[in-house]
């Protein structure tokens, strides 16, 4: 990626609008982990997450010429990701494969060394299970805020919610998690 081509830079956006293939590749490279991460946290299944992440980028690719640039490119990416995930979660067929913590647990355990794997594995399994058990509309807020680091305002734009609603849902989600992780807390 060029020096002045941060993912949200006007230059990258202009290159994307001009249909420059390399610009699109740069965008995918820059956001692949974040988009996939949100999808995985929301769906809990690697294959599904990849499917959704790929669809996100394809939609961007198809619609970039019409992107007005009112919001940041990253906001648009998160919005599409969130919508696709929530729609999929709301669909009837999705509920059959809802038990997706296995993928998250494998991912989490992969980072721990042998000595701490057992303890960390238990904690992280509990954490991911707790996240996965959150209501969808709360889980997405926690994921965007505490895992992706978006601000309240950005989350409000992504989810097209009032900032107060975001704050409320986030607080409820954190309180739920605190209760579920009680045995790991001081």
């Amino acid at each position: 990626m060029r020096e002045d081509d941060t993912p949200d830079s006007p230059l990258l956006l202009a290159r994307l609008r001009a249909g420059e293939a390399l610009a699109f590749e740069e965008l995918v490279r820059a956001y692949q982990h974040r988009v996939f991460g949100v999808a995985l946290r929301m769906l809990g299944n690697g294959a599904e997450a990849e499917e959704v992440a790929q669809e996100v980028f394809l939609r961007i690719h198809r619609a970039i010429a019409g992107f007005r640039g009112d919001a940041k490119l990253s906001t648009w990416l998160y919005r599409i990701t969130s919508r696709l995930c929530l729609n999929r979660l709301a669909s009837g067929e999705r509920r059959m494969t809802r038990r997706g913590e296995e993928t998250l647990m494998r991912l989490a355990n992969g980072h721990a060394d042998a000595a701490t794997r057992l303890e960390q594995g238990e904690l992280e399994a509990a954490l991911h299970r707790a996240i996965a058990e959150l209501p969808d509309e709360r889980r997405i807020v926690v994921v965007l805020r505490d895992l992706e680091g978006l601000s309240y305002e950005e989350i409000a734009l992504v989810l097209e919610l009032e900032p107060g609603t975001v704050r409320s849902r986030l607080h409820r989600a954190r309180m739920d998690l605190k209760d579920k992780l009680e045995r790991f807390l001081p």
Partner: peptide
């Protein structure tokens, strides 16, 4: 705890598949 969760990485060759 939430903020300490390791970031997830997209699968290898994800970019190629998207492109």
């Amino acid at each position: 705890l939430l903020r300490a969760v390791e970031p997830v990485r997209a699968p290898a060759a994800f970019v190629d598949r998207v492109l």
